[in-house]
Design a protein around this nucleic acid. Sequence first.
DNA 1: CGCAACGTAGCACGACCGTACTACCATGAG
DNA 2: CTCATGGTAGTACGGTCGTGCTACGTTGCG
Lengths: 196, 196
Amino acid sequence: MPRLIDHDQRRAELAEACWRVIAERGVGAVSVRTVAAEAGVSVGSLRHVLPTKGGLLAAAMRLCLERATARFAAHSPDLRTRADAINWLTEMLPLDAERRLEMTIHLALAAEAAGHPELASLRAAPDDAVRSGCEVVLRTCAAAGLLRDGLDLDAETTLLHVLLDGLAFHLLGPAARLSDDAARAILDAHLAARWA
Amino acid sequence: MPRLIDHDQRRAELAEACWRVIAERGVGAVSVRTVAAEAGVSVGSLRHVLPTKGGLLAAAMRLCLERATARFAAHSPDLRTRADAINWLTEMLPLDAERRLEMTIHLALAAEAAGHPELASLRAAPDDAVRSGCEVVLRTCAAAGLLRDGLDLDAETTLLHVLLDGLAFHLLGPAARLSDDAARAILDAHLAARWA
DNA sequence: CGCAACGTAGCACGACCGTACTACCATGAG
DNA sequence: CTCATGGTAGTACGGTCGTGCTACGTTGCG
């Protein structure tokens, strides 16, 4: 038997090369050729692991989801103070280059979903993850008696999710219209108004 | 002198055809050929008005901006009650098919800006417009004594803008995760908390 | 009427696209 | 050692891409 490669790791490398192409030249510049060149392999070799362009785009989008969920899983859900809650929530915000890239790529690919059906199913997953993240934070805090009484947790989850997405959106783009600290401050003020 | 056409109107028609292609097949499907076919003209004819692909994309993006600003201008800035303010603000939210399409296209094109420099300069304009819209609403209400005292209007503008973008984001996509009424209710609650 | 202009259509070119297919190489089980 | 096997590279094909260019109506001023 010849040398075996880890297909999953390979897929991730190629997906990362795809990220780079998207970030530097836009989704329109993605082709099996450009991505293979970016990854430093031949087209034939790329297609041995990712046979079609749709599969390549799907792998790139799946990588966004994997990275995000891995980050969430690594963070302990230890919520005793408001600062803990803020830290947990800011984990879902694009506050560093890595997460900014991740979200930019996700947005770009989501916009292309109309032309590539395999992307459509991957579109909603991170959104659901963020919502359930908001829900966990609020429910945990509420259960610990950290929040005011009489809050509609469902409505508060939606509101927090909306706020988080708005912040994320403003944190993106070359001209950062919102500083990291300002985003954190807005989140803190929002939570403070609901704190016990 | 032969028949003259209105170049601006023509550009708008072609840009609209470009919108349709983007909405149905993604930005990746945009080419001078597909858009010309969608508009029902020949490639040569299209290129007589929009000589390059970059120009075509830019025209499509500019149309987003024009439509939005036209809508804003049509709405009178008559702010006497909270309902007026809500109405003014919801004007900037994608609450009908037209505005949803408009924003979807804008997002898709903004994501492609990396590969088409002419789009980059058009990216920030609507964002600025929305921010100044928020500012006008808040300042007008504050000047009329409708808002609580001691509000930091600058920070409130940013917060309102973030909230509006978050709502807009949630109003998009095939699976509408937020109903029109829910969005309006969130906006109303936000303003109510700041009302005199 | 005639002709200069403007709009329209279409072809040609070189480049790049996605994909299929084949030849080659390195490897490790037997 | 040998050889089947999985990985890599390269070529080829039919098609579409952006763009330059030319030829052809069509129109309304002089």
